[in-house]
């Protein structure tokens, strides 16, 4: 049996995708570990692999018509050194894995792996990022929130590939990123949070808040965000408990090997409070 396809371009890749049931592999940093069989052994896959990491059509970073377009096979390390990638997104990426793993891991892989702990996801959700999915005949555009439907579950069809990631080029003057985890170099996020805001004359003009690792998918409470838009930032401190009550139901963490649900919920409370009650003063904060 053929156990791998190495297409020369996207057209060939999509043709293979249409004809054979296969697993796309970009950097392999998730797939090689998830399918590992132990010391000295090749990992085992139940379908042939379709290598997509090298495809030139999936390796762009460009700005076009109000969107930053990032090819899914762009490496995390390439994003870190590219001038078009927003600083606050780089902060999240620079805390993922270790430099050698970031020289292999891709943005598309992090999205399609659809882990609730995927560290690029809170930013992409907060920015209302959209994805282009293509098969040999058509392409469709879908918000990231609709693409990811649960842990390891996406709307990707068996003949499709993710071919583009679109991030609106809107700039947020206030940005805040926090990841709580263990040793760097390991994929052990307990809670991550990306907050973005625009404050004009002391009033909240726009506000985005997204939590990772606290529910089956990234959590963004639009009700809560909308209820705060137009409000004076100075009152958020005194109203925090009321705000938390609005946010809290969407935070449904689990007990797992990395942490307990109670711990995660406490961390969310503290992070949200830190972000909202310091909004007046925050320009760009980032903590380990």
């Amino acid at each position: 049996m053929v156990n791998g396809y190495h297409p020369k371009d996207l057209i060939e890749a999509l043709k293979i995708r249409a004809e054979v049931s296969c697993i796309p592999l970009a950097g392999g940093t998730d797939l090689m570990v998830q399918n590992a069989r132990g010391t000295g052994l090749s990992p085992n896959f139940d379908k042939p692999l379709l290598f997509v990491g090298h495809l030139p059509e999936l390796r762009h970073i460009e700005k076009k018509e109000g969107f930053l377009h990032i090819g899914p096979s762009v490496l995390l390390s390439e994003m870190l050194s590219h001038p078009f990638i927003p600083e606050t997104f780089k902060k999240a990426i620079s805390q993922m894995a270790s430099p050698p793993t970031r020289n292999l891991a891709t943005l598309g892989g992090n999205i399609c792996n659809a882990s609730p702990a995927g560290d690029t996801l809170p930013f992409l959700y907060a920015m209302d990022a959209e994805l282009i999915l293509e098969n040999h005949a058509f392409d469709r555009r879908i918000p990231i929130e609709e693409f990811i439907c649960g842990p390891k579950q996406t709307e990707l069809k068996s003949d499709e590939l993710l071919t583009d990631i679109l991030i609106p080029t809107t700039l947020f003057p206030v940005s805040y990123y926090k990841k709580v985890g263990q040793r760097r170099g390991m994929s052990l996020t307990k809670v991550s949070f990306h907050g973005l805001a625009e404050i004009v004359d002391g009033y909240v003009e726009d506000l985005r808040m997204a939590f990772g690792s606290v529910a089956p998918t990234v959590v963004r409470s639009r009700d809560c965000e909308n209820s705060l838009i137009g409000e004076p930032v100075s009152t958020l401190k005194s109203r925090f408990n009321e705000i938390w009550e609005l946010y809290e139901p969407s935070i449904q963490p689990i007990d797992d090997a990395r942490s307990t649900a109670t711990y995660r919920k406490n961390v969310c409370y503290n992070i949200l409070k830190d972000f909202l009650t310091h909004l007046e003063n925050i320009k760009e904060i980032y903590n380990e």
Partner: peptide, 9 residues
């Protein structure tokens, strides 16, 4: 990391 790289890459 050589342990993460399949021959196809």
């Amino acid at each position: 990391n050589a342990c993460l790289i399949p021959a196809g890459n």
